[in-house]
Amino acid sequence: MNLPTRTARPLDHLVLPVAELGRARRRLADLGFTVAEDARHPFGTENACVFLSDNTYLEPLAVASREECEAAALAGNAFIARDHAFRFRQGPEGLSAIVLGTPDAAADHIRYRSCGISGGEMLEFSRPMRLPDGREGLGSFRLAFAADLRAPDFFLFSCQRIRALPVDSALHNHENGVVGIAEVVLSEPNPTDFQYLLQEAVDEREVSAHSFGMDIQAGSAKLSVMNPAGMEAFYGRSVSATERGLRGRAVVFRVTDLEATRALFAQNDIEFAEMGGRLIVPEAPGQGVIFAFGV
């Protein structure tokens, strides 16, 4: 019997809930990121994205209109419902979702349902984007959701860029030298309990299991699930050995010149530690998870 051909989905972006966009913008700017103009979704949330030259981006996400969000959640919008659930359980800041690029979200939705990991009905929407020169463009997206009831504080979705955002090349230039995302780190006491979810969401069977957890490749980025020992060893962070479920913990960035990044952090009074040849910046208001920087 011929098995269906798999095409691993690359990392597209990360959803980072924040309490307030202005504070997130200031924090990201202090870290040396160039932040795009604020933008509104048609269902009550807003973002201020950081676009990277490897075609990934960060999406700091805030609630612009609680009334619009509540109406969208009641109407079955899985993106908003899961954002509400995350904020209720974990507070207003963190890493709630990994987003994967796809050429066909509808096919992914069918596959997620057949695998038993569907996280809700598909979502299609458009939103405007104001460019640095004052022009305005439009992006359109189709999303398919994947989730596991055992991990209520995390989900994944594939994102089909029906009409890609018209990102100005100036938005790819960051004072901190960041050129892309190398790794996204989750935690869970027994990482392989969620191997199936990640394999099917990414559409990649190959997983690297090790004493600190497991890794799966999503394009140029690695998705890692670490146990408490791994979080302590690589990030100096103590996490619960009994609290179950996937939790977003860290984003690892590639930089062009680590010494220049270190100098910028010292200039901007950014707290960091050095571990394993990387600069580890702990969580702070406007930055809900650990940021690590390496070459």
Rank of each mutant, 00 (worst) to 15 (best):
D108P: 11
Y235N: 05
E200R: 15
N47R: 02
A233K: 11
L156H: 11
C159R: 06
Q90D: 09
L100I: 10
R142G: 10
A106T: 14
S53Y: 13
S114L: 13
F51E: 01
H109Y: 13
S158L: 09
F145V: 14
G76K: 08
Q160A: 07
P42F: 05
S208Y: 08
V179T: 15
R130V: 13
A182Q: 13
V202P: 00
D38T: 12
A144S: 12
R254P: 04
V295K: 13
L100A: 06
D269Y: 11
H109I: 02
R23D: 10
F253V: 05
L95W: 01
D257G: 05
E59D: 09
A97W: 00
D257T: 11
F88K: 12
L143E: 01
T7M: 14
Q199M: 08
V184Y: 04
A221D: 04
L171N: 01
K222Q: 15
T56V: 10
G277T: 12
F212S: 14
E136C: 14
E188F: 01
M129Q: 03
L28M: 13
L171F: 05
P191W: 04
T45D: 03
G91T: 09
E46Q: 11
R142P: 03
G44R: 00
A284N: 09
A81Q: 06
N2H: 09
F293I: 08
G245W: 15
S169I: 12
L165F: 14
S169M: 10
L223G: 01
E59S: 13
A105I: 02
I290P: 01
G277R: 11
C49S: 15
S126Y: 06
S224F: 05
P4W: 07
G294D: 12
M226S: 07
M122V: 06
V167K: 06
A107M: 09
P17I: 03
L223W: 05
A107Q: 14
N47S: 15
V99R: 02
A292H: 09
A233W: 08
P128Y: 08
I80E: 02
M275L: 13
A250I: 03
V50C: 11
N190F: 14
F194G: 01
A147R: 13
R27L: 15
L21E: 00
D54I: 15
P103I: 09
V167M: 08
A19G: 15
T242L: 12
E206K: 13
A36G: 10
P228H: 10
E232M: 07
S53R: 12
A164G: 05
A221N: 10
G277N: 07
A71W: 00
A81W: 02
H210L: 05
G94M: 02
F291S: 02
L198E: 01
L165D: 04
I290M: 03
S126W: 07
P152T: 12
V281M: 08
R111P: 04
S169H: 10
H41M: 03
A229N: 15
T261D: 06
D54R: 14
D104W: 11
G248A: 07
F291Q: 07
P285N: 12
L61M: 14
M275W: 09
E204H: 13
R262L: 06
D153I: 11
R163T: 12
A78K: 00
G288H: 00
D148S: 15
V63N: 00
A229F: 13
P228L: 08
S118A: 15
A97Q: 02
P228F: 09
S96H: 03
C49V: 06
P17T: 01
L58I: 14
